[in-house]
């Protein structure tokens, strides 16, 4: 069973519908027992990092998240779910995050007024590494983004794909061991996003190229 974590950080309908479209059984949950039993976990999120972290703490989910990640459960972060995997976000006057991945999250500060923030729409992800989640996905495929802050991983080896916007090249997809995380909305990114989710639904959480 795939668990979609509901920590009151946004609407999970489209993630659930994408799983349904793949024939992947899923459950929307905030129950630590269900999370521990899950064979894989999607950690979505929209909105602000500060309230997302607060909700996680109030629901008592921080330690169980660390536990399932440490145990090797295949784990996929999406959007704000990705951002709060890092050490720190500038958002909401500075927010300490989960520290699963080293790095911080910064706001876009475009110098050209034609670059509107949020970064909203379809943009290309240039692949920097091979990864089981990228099987069958072409380099420079377009994915759907909606965000005002972007991850800056401290380790270049965590960067799986990058995107250009507002004068910066940012990490649009990151990964380390059983954790993969995307800044774009795979669940709203058409056939290519569905391909990534299908790859996740088949992933055992290792980086063995034989999969």
């Amino acid at each position: 069973m795939l668990a979609i974590i509901d920590y009151k950080a946004g609407n999970l309908t489209s993630v659930k519908l994408a799983c349904d479209a793949l024939g992947q059984a899923s459950v929307i949950t905030a129950d630590p027992a269900v999370m521990r039993r899950a064979t894989r976990i999607i950690f979505p999120g929209v909105g602000a990092a500060g309230s997302a972290m607060r909700h996680l703490q109030e629901l008592g989910l921080v330690s169980v998240l660390r536990e399932v990640i440490a145990r090797g459960t295949p784990f996929l972060g999406i959007c704000v779910g990705t951002q709060i995997l890092f050490d720190f976000s500038e958002e909401d006057g500075g927010t300490d995050c989960l520290g699963v991945l080293p790095g911080r999250v910064t706001r876009f500060r475009p110098s050209d007024p034609r670059d509107k923030v949020p970064h909203m729409g379809w943009n290309q992800v240039r692949l920097r590494q091979t990864h089981p989640l990228l099987a069958g996905i072409a380099d420079a495929s377009d994915f759907y983004f909606v965000h005002s802050y972007y991850p800056q991983p401290a380790c270049a080896t965590d960067v799986l794909g990058v995107t250009d916007f507002a004068g910066v090249t940012f990490a649009a997809m990151v990964g380390r061991k059983n954790v993969a995380a995307v800044q774009f909305h795979a669940e709203k990114s058409g056939p290519v996003g569905l391909q990534l989710l299908a790859n996740f639904a088949a992933w055992d959480g290792t980086l063995n190229p034989e999969i």
Binding site: I137, A138, S141, D142, G190, P191, V192, Q195
Partner: peptide
């Protein structure tokens, strides 16, 4: 514009 090169 976004192109529909869905898969490699």
């Amino acid at each position: 514009v976004r192109r529909m090169h869905a898969t490699a």
